[in-house]
Amino acid sequence: MTKRRTKPTATERVRTVLADEIVRGVIGPGVPLDEVSIAERFDVSRTPVREAIRQLEVIGFVEARPHRGAVVPSFTAERISEMFAVMAELEALCAHEAALRSTPEERNRLTAAHEACRIAALGGDIPVYYETNLLFHDTIYAISHNGFLAEVTLSVRNRVAPFRKAQFQSTGRLMRSVSEHETVVRAVLAGDADAAAAAMRDHLTYVRSSVGSVTPNLKG
């Protein structure tokens, strides 16, 4: 049984909101992130704000510039497409290996994770779907039985996570995502590695296009 994620910390809350606003263009390129004003906005001390900004810097959502502090960088459609292309190949490889190496018990876990996504999507609950979607992909990584591949894939996912989250604002995206997951799951359960990889690659391609529909500043 997989544990539900715990309540977000102050740092996670600040990081998540700032990342989402950067993706949607609410906080535009070149805008400085002032620790004092952010701390006041979230009613927290500067410590979690400073850590949130540091974490955003790690995934490329913030740049440290001399005499200006932390500022929001520019994201181009080409750069985002490059990131998703790498993400798609890594996740495709995870799905490929999962189809070959997963045990019956692990395939049951994948089926359960998929069902949790379906239930969340039917309820139209975006926050819950986001969490169950993470669990679904985490399960794919785990049952690939390649620890290094899982680590690298998770590292890349962390860099595109705010963009992946934004996609769920697109009309009809939750159920479309579930349908894409279904294709992956069927291939994994059948032990068809090539089909699993192709399905996961297609899934990430759809994710990228959905991101574009809710982040118009990245089109082009």
Rank of each mutant, 00 (worst) to 15 (best):
R65M: 08
P73Y: 05
N133A: 12
E78S: 15
K165P: 00
L56N: 09
G69W: 03
G212L: 15
A98R: 10
E180A: 13
S170N: 10
A39C: 07
T171P: 11
D138A: 14
S213L: 12
R107Y: 03
E151D: 11
M1E: 02
A198N: 13
F84A: 09
E57D: 11
R79D: 05
A88G: 07
S74Y: 07
G25L: 03
P162K: 12
A77T: 03
E131H: 15
T47P: 02
A195N: 04
P8I: 00
E82V: 06
T76E: 06
S45C: 01
P8A: 03
F168T: 03
R24D: 02
A70N: 14
N217W: 11
R109L: 12
R41K: 14
L218R: 14
A99R: 12
G191Y: 10
R4Q: 03
L204Y: 14
A19C: 11
S81I: 00
R65S: 05
F42C: 09
A95W: 04
R13L: 04
T47N: 12
V160C: 08
P32Q: 07
V14G: 00
A92G: 15
S170R: 14
K3S: 05
A116G: 06
A10Q: 07
S102Y: 04
P48H: 09
R173M: 03
V44P: 06
M200I: 00
R46I: 00
G60F: 08
I27Y: 09
L90S: 05
Y141A: 10
S177W: 02
D43E: 11
V62W: 00
G25W: 03
E97S: 10
L122M: 12
F136A: 12
R41L: 00
R109H: 11
A120I: 06
R65N: 03
T2R: 13
A197P: 11
R173E: 04
Y130L: 13
N146T: 05
G28A: 13
N108M: 09
A142W: 09
P8D: 01
G25K: 09
N133L: 02
